[in-house]
């Protein structure tokens, strides 16, 4: 029996293996369940009792020998032959895509504006999109027959002939939040008020019936046009770069007096043009009165600007409607 073991040992040592197919043959020949080593183990019954221990040991040695040779050969094939690599081991294969989250471009523009204002010492306040006539118009010094109060310009939600019941509109600007803020907080007030506003306008690449504004308000005892100017210029520089070319010119809004508009120079020196970026002014005494602030004691400035307009300028977007279509091919450009 022991010579059979010896013969098998020789066989294991001399079995030719030069590639992985032959290695598999080697495994089947010796190491598999029905291989020669297992088969020989089964012959232990025929071995004399006193030889059983020696037989068992030599069989274990034989098994280890075969297993070691197999392991060595296997690792040598794995390290030496590229041809044997699995197709999926190719690290240049594409990786599955991870979802990439992003803020909407209008949020990004708004965040940029907010961070500038936060740096300038302004806090943030909010108000409702459905607003009453008092906050949206009357308190902001809009005369009763002002065109903005027409149905052609403003969406109405509720209209009443009873003078005690205030009409409700979709706010046409973020300025009513000024009034709400002054009603609940004593000066000094320094806040911006971002939000969605609505105008009854036909949809086109240049106009949409809803858009977003940011309102800024600063009220204290001696706020002047000079302060307004300083703040506007600082904002313009932080938003458009330190070398931004700007100008201030008189404007007209019912809720500020005097009113100013700011233009920045857009484009090259020769081919550029002045673009209006915001409207501003000193809070009209009538607005203060409506909001319960003493206009002799306090002065203040306010300004408002459109978020879409700034985002359009910044990114060169040619159709305002693309902000609300949510086309992934649009959104993923603002990752």
């Amino acid at each position: 029996m022991l010579d059979k073991v010896e013969a098998l040992k020789k066989e294991i040592e001399s079995f030719p293996v030069s590639n992985s197919d032959e290695l598999e043959n080697f495994r089947l020949e010796f190491l598999s369940k029905n291989g020669k080593i297992q088969s020989m183990f089964k012959m232990i019954g025929q071995v004399a009792k006193e030889d059983k221990a020696a037989f068992g040991k030599s069989m274990n040695d034989l098994k280890n020998l075969a297993q070691n040779r197999f392991d060595e050969l296997q690792s040598s094939f794995a390290s030496s032959t590229t041809a044997e690599r699995s197709a999926t081991d190719d690290i240049t294969l594409t990786a599955p895509l991870s979802p990439v989250g992003s803020l909407h471009p209008l949020t990004q523009t708004l965040e940029e504006m907010k961070s500038i204002f936060y740096r300038l010492g302004f806090t943030i306040s909010h108000g409702p999109e459905i607003e009453d006539d008092f906050h949206n118009f009357t308190a902001l010094n809009f005369p009763p027959n002002h065109p903005a109060r027409d149905e052609q310009d403003t969406f109405f939600v509720r209209k009443s002939d009873d003078p005690k019941v205030d009409d409700l509109v979709l706010r046409t600007h973020t300025s009513p939040v000024q009034i709400r803020l002054m009603e609940k907080q004593k000066p000094p007030i320094r806040a911006i008020m971002p939000g969605r506003v609505y105008r009854n306008e036909a949809v086109s690449p240049k106009s949409y019936f809803l858009f977003h504004q940011v309102e800024a308000l600063y009220v204290d005892e001696n706020v002047s046009v000079a302060d307004l100017k300083d703040t506007l210029i600082t904002f313009a520089k932080l938003m458009y770069g330190n070398d931004v070319k700007y100008r201030l010119r008189p404007g007209f809004f019912p809720f500020t007096e005097p009113s100013l508009e700011m233009d920045i120079w857009w484009g090259s020196k020769e081919k550029g043009k002045w673009l209006e970026i915001l409207g501003s002014g000193m809070v009209d005494p009538n607005v203060f009165k409506a909001a319960g602030v003493d206009p002799e004691k306090y002065t203040g400035f306010a300004w408002g600007m459109g978020v879409e307009r700034i985002a359009i300028l910044k990114h060169g977007i040619d159709d305002i409607r693309s902000f609300y279509e949510n086309d992934i091919r649009f959104l993923e450009q603002f990752n």
Partner: peptide
């Protein structure tokens, strides 16, 4: 951070 893209949709 959770990999969502923000959208703005029409409120009317």
């Amino acid at each position: 951070h959770l990999g969502f893209k923000e959208i703005y949709s029409n409120s009317l």
